[in-house]
Computed example of a mutant assay.
Amino acid sequence: MEIAATSTEYVRVTAKATAGGSPVSPSAPPMFAFQPTSATGNPAVEDWLTGEWVTPHARILIGPNGGAVTLEAGEYRVWLAWTAGAEAPVYRTPGTITVY
């Protein structure tokens, strides 16, 4: 995804949780983290931002006009975490976001 630094828009990630082949409803909002591609390791606790579910997507509004975060120009990896039943998966999503 490419986005202008002055744009405000949703980042969407498809996320599905299943247990024994049956869908599991997430019990909390999805959490997002945006790390520069140069960063190593998992996001720190303070990096996580609260998104929302619009099934089957997790989404978060980013940008200068009411977004949860405004990203500076650069390339970022997107991380997604959520709680579903006893599981709390944390994923680094495929691809990157380029902010120009």
Rank of each mutant, 00 (worst) to 15 (best):
W79A: 03
F34Y: 13
A44D: 13
N65R: 15
G74L: 05
F34D: 03
S27E: 12
G74R: 11
S25N: 14
V24R: 10
G67R: 09
G85N: 03
Y76C: 07
G51Y: 02
S38K: 04
P56M: 06
G66D: 09
G21K: 08
E72F: 05
P94F: 07
A73F: 01
S7T: 15
W79G: 02
V99Q: 07
S25R: 13
I3R: 15
W48I: 05
I3C: 06
G74M: 04
V13G: 03
A68S: 14
S25D: 12
A17W: 08
V90P: 00
V78Q: 00
A84S: 11
R12Q: 06
L71Y: 13
T50E: 15
H57V: 05
L61W: 07
G41T: 02
L49D: 01
P89F: 02
A73D: 13
G95V: 06
Y91V: 12
Y10N: 08
V13R: 04
V24N: 06
L71V: 14
E9N: 07
G66M: 09
T70V: 14
S38T: 14
A81N: 05
G63A: 02
D47T: 11
I62G: 09
W48S: 01
E87D: 12
A5S: 15
V13N: 05
G21S: 13
D47C: 02
T18L: 13
S7A: 12
T14K: 11
E46V: 04
L71N: 13
T83C: 04
A28N: 09
I97T: 12
F32K: 05
E2G: 02
I3S: 10
T14Y: 12
A28Q: 10
A5P: 07
K16W: 04
W48E: 04
P36Y: 07
A73P: 15
L80N: 07
Y100G: 14
G74F: 01
P64V: 05
G67Y: 11
I60K: 06
P26H: 06
A44K: 15
A73R: 14
W53L: 00
A4M: 11
A86S: 09
Y100M: 10
Y76N: 12
E52D: 11
V69M: 09
V78C: 04
T55S: 10
T98W: 01
A17D: 13
T6P: 01
E75S: 14
P64S: 02
T83I: 12
Y76S: 04
S22F: 15
P23S: 09
L49Q: 13
E72C: 00
M31C: 03
M1H: 11
S38R: 03
G21A: 11
V54Q: 10
Y100L: 13
W79K: 06
V54I: 08
A84R: 01
T18D: 11
S38P: 00
P26T: 05
P23Q: 06
R77S: 12
V99Y: 08
G67Q: 11
